[in-house]
Design a protein around this nucleic acid. Structure first.
Lengths: 192, 192
DNA sequence: CGTGAAGCGGGACGTCGTTCCGTTTGTGTC
DNA sequence: GACACAAACGGAACGACGTCCCGCTTCACG
């Protein structure tokens, strides 16, 4: 057990320290300049060379994933929980989507980065989708089974739609992503 | 009149020819590689140097605007026309949005370019918004006045929402932007 | 047909993500 | 405690991008 704890990831002590330092520096840089903060800035912030970043995180996307992994996991785990606690499956879906939007809306440029054809950020896209689409699908299926929505939409489509609607919402007081997403989810509701 | 026609833009004949050639080359490059086609590729396609592009179009965004200007104008002008021909203002709004989505969906990467914080593409964003938001607002107001929708949304927000939903829809058979936009517009409808 | 300016080509610059290489440093072993 | 060697490091280097600069070409007017 103790071995397993210590054996995680890098072997040398300085390397382990650097990984933590880098994650903190990246998080700070993302808050200050958005997720598009240059790798060099993050390296400078952490007081290391650029190569050190790439030794720990094969690509920029992996660093971004590492920084947000905990929050994405939390969001994913909230799905089934809401299904148990909310009045109806549709309410659960609605609350879960709000959770996701709140997460995206507070990360400058993250929503945009998720869909950039630029550089090698596909793995970021892939990670978010792999982790969250199953949860979304589960909520969607539950709501459909309860007859609250028409089932014409896949979890994948809803996730992408919501993610897209959040793009550029951080710095624009005239654009309220929450309202748009709310309308989208309203549009899902069965009009009986 | 003849003077005005000829006097538009550049004075020398080769410059006028190059401007046309460049627009054609850019259009072709955008179809082949998306709107993110490198300036060098477009220059090569047109058989000119890169500087020639910048002499005619101060920035990449201006070239993109020039290529799509006619279609954007046509879309803008279709708004009032639909208001006259469609059964109700809400139907007009719906059809007009379909028009816009069809336009965006056939231009690889254009929707994405509209919201990239990258390089200097803000003027692209600005141009689209300046031209289309008033039309959208007019349709929205008409539908609201007819009592078909709740007026909680601005033309600006709807335009941005629709544009965002179209991002990345071109190469992904699993994501149907039209369906998502349809849901969004459905969500606008008054639920009386 | 000459001349001056408008127009041109492509190389140069700064920035980005990523990789390479010579050097430093932590750590298991005697 | 000293040694050796692999692991880890820093920063320069590379290729791609948008954009700008400079020396040459070519149009058009007298």
């Amino acid at each position: 057990m103790k071995d397993e704890e210590r054996a995680v990831r890098p072997r040398r002590a300085d390397a382990r320290r650097n990984e933590v330092t880098l994650l903190e520096a990246a998080a700070a840089a993302f808050v200050a300049s958005g997720v598009e903060a240059p790798v060099r800035d993050i390296a400078a912030r952490a007081g290391v060379g650029t190569a050190t970043i790439y030794r720990h995180f094969p690509t920029r996307a992996d660093l971004i994933i590492a920084v947000y992994r905990h929050q994405v996991e939390a969001c994913a785990e909230a799905g089934p929980a809401l299904l148990g606690s909310a009045p109806t499956p549709y309410d659960a879906l609605r609350e879960w989507i709000d959770l996701f939007v709140d997460f995206l809306a507070t990360k400058h440029g993250l929503a945009g980065a998720l869909h950039s054809d630029q550089s090698g950020l596909d793995s970021l896209h892939t990670y978010f989708l792999d982790r969250l689409v199953p949860v979304c699908t589960q909520l969607l299926d539950a709501a459909a089974e309860a007859g609250e929505i028409h089932a014409h939409l896949t979890g994948y489509e809803l996730m992408r739609g919501v993610g897209n609607l959040c793009i550029g919402a951080e710095n624009d007081p005239r654009y309220d992503a929450r309202r748009l997403v709310g309308l989208l989810v309203t549009g899902l509701r069965r009009t009986t």
